[in-house]
Amino acid sequence: MQMTTGEHWYLRVNYLYEGGNVVGCVYCNAPNITAFGPGLALRRSFQAAFKAVNDCKKCNKIVTFLRTFSPSHFEHGEWNTGGKCNRTRPIRPDEVDRARPDWEYRNIQVEVARDAGKEVIDVTEMMLTRFDGHPGLFWGNKWMKGYSDCTHWCMPGPVDTWNELLLETIKRHNRISS
């Protein structure tokens, strides 16, 4: 059984290859290379991963779940430009900014996972309300003092919810498979 995600890695410079040739990039601003948004890289990566699992003849006992996009909560900048995540309470659902790219990434993941016949553990919407679930400036990274960590979920609550959702999904899968 595997549960995977890693979407924030697509939000930095990435080069996209097909057949060993560069076909484009994300955030590279390189001459003579087609610029794509992170959504394309995310889509292609998940399509390739699910294809590999689905085509694997020795992997027929693998159950694959996908956890949807886990948003960061930087406000007033990003991790390296003064962004902070120092809220101490969840925000109300009506306070969620639904114009964020997080929705696009979540929708891509759900579409690709369902096309591949995989189960989705959808955490994006609920995690958009949990600005309080990050360690902020006090995360103790000795190499990056003073930076906020508004990406990792280290506070009690959010990840506990993910574990509960995963457990229920496993139970449901086992009931269906029996």
Rank of each mutant, 00 (worst) to 15 (best):
F50P: 01
P90S: 11
E111M: 12
R87S: 14
G19D: 05
K61F: 07
L16S: 02
P90M: 09
K61I: 03
E104S: 08
S45P: 00
I121P: 09
P90I: 06
V159Q: 14
G24L: 03
N14K: 08
E95I: 03
F65A: 06
R106L: 01
W9D: 15
G77I: 01
E111I: 02
M126P: 07
N21H: 10
M1E: 11
W153N: 09
G37E: 12
P135E: 06
C28H: 00
I62P: 02
G77M: 05
V120C: 09
R175E: 12
V23R: 04
E111D: 14
A30D: 10
P135Q: 02
L128K: 08
T81D: 11
H73F: 06
P38T: 00
L137R: 12
S45K: 03
I33M: 04
F138A: 15
H8T: 03
G117I: 01
T161L: 13
N80C: 08
N60Q: 14
G77A: 07
R106V: 02
H152W: 03
M144H: 13
W139D: 12
T5R: 11
Y147F: 14
V13R: 15
N86Q: 13
T34V: 06
M127Q: 11
R43H: 01
W162C: 05
W79M: 13
L42K: 04
E78W: 10
A30P: 00
P135I: 00
D102M: 01
L40D: 00
